[in-house]
C-alpha cells in the first residue's frame, strides 16, 4: 500500500431529481511514471493509479484508465446525472494492488 494516499471528492450535497451535477476528484498519489532514474542510474519502477471509477447507486458514471502521463495527484472533473437520492462511490486502483475508495451521499432537494 503506497503511503500517504488520500482521496478527496467534491460533490454537491443535494440535487434536483434528474439534475446534472459537476464532480471533482483528487487523490494524493506520486504517480511514479517509470521514466525516472535514481542516483545510481537505475530506473525507478512505475507505480501509478491505473484506474478510477465513479458509480452512483451501483450504476457507472465514468470508468477511467490512467497511464503514467497523468500528473501527480490525479485530478478529474466530470458531470453526473442524479436520478434519485443515493450514494456516489469513487474507487481508485493502484498498480501495487491497493484499492482506495470513498463515497458521498446526495439527497434530492
Amino acid at each position: 500500500m503506497a503511503s500517504g494516499v488520500k482521496p478527496r471528492v467534491k460533490v454537491p450535497k443535494t440535487a434536483a431529481a434528474g439534475e446534472a451535477i459537476t464532480i471533482k476528484t483528487l487523490i494524493s498519489h506520486k504517480m511514479e511514471s517509470g521514466q525516472r532514474k535514481d542516483k545510481e542510474g537505475n530506473v525507478i519502477p512505475r507505480s501509478i493509479i491505473n484506474r478510477f471509477t465513479c458509480e452512483f447507486n451501483g450504476e457507472s458514471v465514468v470508468d477511467v484508465t490512467l497511464e503514467p502521463a497523468i500528473s501527480t495527484n490525479p485530478y478529474f472533473e466530470f458531470d453526473a446525472t442524479v436520478p434519485e437520492a443515493g450514494e456516489f462511490k469513487f474507487t481508485w486502483y493502484d498498480d501495487d494492488g491497493s484499492v482506495y475508495d470513498t463515497s458521498k451521499k446526495v439527497a434530492i432537494g
Binding site: V64, A69, P74, F76, E77, T81
Partner: peptide
C-alpha cells in the same frame, strides 16, 4: 509512451466530457 487516459462514459454520465491534468 503516448497513452494518457481513456474515459469510458457510463449511463449516468451527464455529459461525455472530462477534465484532468497531464504530464
Amino acid at each position: 509512451t503516448p497513452g494518457v487516459a481513456t474515459f469510458n462514459f457510463g449511463p449516468l454520465a451527464a455529459s461525455q466530457a472530462a477534465s484532468t491534468r497531464i504530464r
